[in-house]
């Protein structure tokens, strides 16, 4: 940690999930970095791509099954409508604390200079095209490209 006194210069965030709580975690961390003068980039891979897929990004849900912190029994969490219900509850609370919804948040990230990339392998797997994605996605890149972009002192990588 003696390098730059451990100063964080850039956060490289990998988002692999599209549940609302994970997407928000990635977005808040990226935006918070920019607010502190730290560079931030997000690599969207696997289900994380849904957070930047134009037809899906506005309709992400909270996970109600397999999430003990929701305090909903798994059997009930799996009932029809539970995800939508939990999501609308969460969105109400988010608005109260001035948390933007996903489409607005993406625009904020873009305007704040967060660089965003889509994973080529996952794009191929889901048969997505770059035109399907939010305009703020700069390019579709490989894991190798992402590592290359992560070179340098004070760069930290985070997997969500």
């Amino acid at each position: 940690m003696s390098e730059n006194n451990g100063e964080i210069k850039r956060m490289m965030i990998i988002l692999s999930k599209a549940t609302l709580e994970n997407v928000y975690a990635a977005f808040v961390l990226a935006n918070g970095a920019r607010m502190e003068g730290i560079d931030a980039e997000i690599f969207f891979t696997f289900f994380g791509l849904e957070a930047v897929h134009k037809k899906k990004l506005a309709r992400l849900h909270v996970a109600t099954v397999g999430n003990p912190a929701m305090h909903i029994p798994t059997m009930i969490g799996g009932l029809p409508g539970m995800e939508a219900f939990a999501t609308s509850m969460m969105k109400k609370e988010m608005e109260k604390i001035d948390m933007p919804e996903v489409p607005e948040f993406l625009d904020i990230l873009s305007a704040s200079g967060v660089r965003m990339w889509a994973c080529k392998l996952a794009m191929d797997m889901f048969h997505y095209k770059k035109e399907d994605l939010f305009e703020g996605i700069e390019d579709v890149i490989t894991v190798g490209d992402f590592y290359k972009k992560s070179e340098g002192a004070g760069v930290h990588m985070l997997f969500i």
């Binding site: 920019r34 607010m35 502190e36 003068g37 904020i108 305007a111 704040s112 200079g113």
Partner: peptide
């Protein structure tokens, strides 16, 4: 937001 970051580079709000 974009112009705000340009006018006050690094941590604009701070």
């Amino acid at each position: 937001i974009k112009e705000f970051y340009q006018l006050f580079p690094k941590a604009p709000l701070k």
